[in-house]
């Protein structure tokens, strides 16, 4: 779901970059020095997870897990996911350079929204209830990301609207997969190490 260089119009790129800078700034401000190792290791985890391919129909799809990143990292998802996108663009040739800000915004803003909407349910209830909230968050994050990609494309030109719609509908199965995955991950983490949702990177 990366947008590449050259597709978006200049105002969209500028606006997306500006918002991403604000998001990264908030994320850094809320990340105490003590939490930098945790944020870094978690950022590396999400980077590795994004290289994992799971089967979907006859093909496979790579994980995004921005919902889970939001639940674990909160606002720190902005800098953490930006770092992942930066490394992917530079070392794997994935995504683009001028669109780094837009891509960060498209992936990290849904993560933060999921953090606010779904984290209360994950911290308070039983592990089973938490898993349901996790699944909801996983699906919601993908849905919001495809919407954000669609908005960025549609704002760049009407000719992109059919492609934006296609991206959205093509990602409905991905939403289901990310929901199942995020739900299971939350269930396991709540049983084994509830602190994952209590302290890291987000405190403050």
């Amino acid at each position: 779901m990366h947008i590449v260089d050259g597709a978006l119009s200049m105002p969209v790129v500028v606006a997306g970059t500006a918002l991403a800078v604000v998001g990264i700034g908030i994320g850094l401000k809320r990340m105490p020095t003590d939490k930098i190792p945790a944020a870094g290791v978690l950022s590396a985890t999400f980077f590795v997870a994004s290289l994992v391919h799971v089967p979907i129909g006859p093909s496979s799809v790579h994980l995004i897990l921005n919902g889970l990143a939001g639940l674990v990292l909160g606002w720190a998802a902005f800098p953490a996911l930006f770092v992942g996108l930066l490394l992917q663009a530079v070392f794997f040739g994935f995504g683009g350079i001028t669109v780094l800000g837009v891509n960060t915004l498209n992936i990290a803003l849904p993560a933060v929204i999921v953090y606010y909407l779904c984290r209360p349910g994950i911290v308070s209830g039983s592990p089973a209830v938490a898993a349901v909230w996790g699944a909801l968050g996983g699906a919601l994050a993908i849905m919001l990301t495809t919407l954000a990609v669609g908005i960025a494309l549609a704002a760049s030109g009407d000719e992109f609207i059919p492609a934006a719609k296609l991206v959205f509908f093509a990602h409905i199965p991905v939403m289901a997969i990310e929901a199942a995955l995020t739900g299971a991950a939350v269930l396991l983490a709540r049983r084994v190490k509830p602190e994952l949702f209590a302290s890291p990177a987000t405190a403050g």
Partner: peptide, 19 residues
């Protein structure tokens, strides 16, 4: 998908302990 979810969850738990 659930197994992959456990896998990712386990990685996060271990990552936090590592950190």
């Amino acid at each position: 998908y659930v197994s992959f979810g456990y896998l990712v969850g386990m990685m996060l738990v271990r990552a936090l302990e590592r950190s």
